[in-house]
Nucleic acid binder design. Structure first.
Lengths: 282, 282
DNA sequence: CGTCGGTGATACCGGGCGGGTATGACAGCG
DNA sequence: CGCTGTCATACCCGCCCGGTATCACCGACG
């Protein structure tokens, strides 16, 4: 009756992303008519129109937008279930820890050292990922635990253990006049004409418009700051990877950043529980 | 390749629950051989044995236990997706609020009054459910928001807004000598020979063994306390429904109970957001 | 120790459904 | 008024899901 098949959800998500049945069918490796029919069946079963087929294009209805969100998390969940089940079958319990490349290096090292000292330490594989990819990696089972940062990352749906709290600093080129300052305010760093703030991608990989350069990872950022082209606000532990061409200036009015260890809610993994216990003693 | 179909998951969950292919097939309304085959296909696709078929019975492997957990939440999620999508299509935005029957009556009334006074108030349907059913109702989409209690309920996977914090009290028969006390400790109330503590079901509906009577809802509890057969520890707001045959004695050393408004993480519902905003102003 | 009951697995068959191809309907556009 | 691009419809086919019949296996029992 109301049993959504994952195949249908996969089809719907692709169509909703492409907003074009032909291209969606191509991406799915099938022909367009069966895809149209599958979406119609889905709509009939739900008793809801998910897509507005106007001439010249397809648009999501409100219900379609809701189902798109739901379907994405369900498909992630299905992939996660398969991965976790396979992982559970392999005898070697290995944990995958996801973290932003370059962030919290010292903290990570401390945690790994402490964990390795435990008697029944599970092997830990560290996966470096882009900004904000940790949530998706946890959701779809590619990672078991992750370093995330409050308030930047959305922690909804995860259990967390607070690790450290630190202020933020502005990273500026050492040659820039601002490098001589002993402190700055958020307003000051946001409004330097010759030093626009670097822009990070949002979760969809898009960039908000703005004057600063578009950044994907910390090595890009480090280079561009060293070149004197941009500046950025990061948490204080970023000092551990600064170049001599960088200067870190404390921000007096910035929000405190808490780095947390996050894992999927309801996780029953003993290995995760062990790592969390170790982390809570740090 | 590794695409778990919900049909397969439904089959697997049923078999894992029954631990018997014949009965599982009957519950699923199908014959046993196709069910066996479907499970075999699932195992082959995952490359994992999920069930140990010993003579005399079927048992879950470790991987099978993992998949059972995952599959249950996935199936709940699929049902939720269907319900939420249908709900989104109906023009009248109606919110379903789940709460334990009888708990937090005054708080609920305040919230509903405040919400009704809002200009664009969505209609709210209150669903009373058993102890701890709120989590499942949120997960499978039967409810949009719920009253839950920290630290009793597992809030993992939900966003929450704290509402009130209150101490716990012991509810004892007014005729019992303890009713004359002005305060009690947890140890004292746990160890009264003629007044064993009532026992609540765990999430599976089972009862831990113990001397006290097995309780399903507050009306049962109220009756049994009034009869002088049992006692219970509840949060202080339970006073609002006490009978004259009851007495509430403060517990000096009990944990504080925080009642929270909870909703599914990542909810993008405007109606939920509105209610949360109202609640945060209470 | 043979038989029987109960279990899951296997063999085989039929129908329905998912998918393909060809084509239609329709709007925008030159 | 064709042309083009788009999604829907019509129709056919092959596969896979599900059903029936049966087997293989083991435990229980007299």
């Amino acid at each position: 009756m109301d049993t959504l098949e994952t195949r249908e959800l996969r089809y719907f998500v692709t169509v909703a992303e492409e907003l074009h049945f032909g291209r969606a069918a191509e991406r799915l490796g099938m022909a367009q008519p069966p895809l149209s029919r599958a979406i119609q069946q889905l709509e009939r079963r739900l008793g809801v129109t998910l897509l507005d087929r106007n001439r010249r294009g397809v648009a999501l209805t409100g219900a379609g937008q809701v189902l798109l969100d739901e379907a994405r998390t369900l498909l992630d969940g299905a992939a996660a279930a398969a991965r976790r089940t396979r992982r559970a079958a392999s005898t070697t319990t290995r944990l995958v820890l996801a973290t932003k490349a370059g962030a919290n290096h010292d903290l990570l090292r401390n945690l790994l050292d402490a964990h390795a000292a435990e008697p029944d330490a599970a092997e830990i594989e560290v996966v470096l990922c882009g900004m904000g990819d940790q949530a998706r990696m946890l959701r779809d089972g590619r990672a078991d635990v992750a370093f995330m940062q409050r308030p930047f990352d959305n922690l909804a749906g995860f259990d967390t253990e607070d690790l450290t709290t630190e202020p933020q600093v502005a990273i500026v080129p050492a040659a820039h006049p601002l490098a001589a300052r002993t402190s700055l305010t958020t307003a000051e760093i946001s409004d330097v004409p010759d030093l626009p703030l670097a822009r990070w991608p949002d979760p969809d990989g898009r960039y908000e418009p703005g004057p600063g350069p578009e950044i994907r990872d910390l090595s890009q950022l480090a280079q561009l700051i060293a070149l004197g082209h941009t500046t950025a606000v990061l948490c204080a532990s970023a000092r551990s990877w600064l170049w001599s061409a960088h200067a870190a200036i404390p921000l007096t009015d910035s929000a405190l950043v808490t780095t947390v260890l996050a894992w999927p809610a309801h996780s029953r993994s003993r290995a995760v529980a062990g790592l969390v216990r170790t982390a809570s003693r740090l």
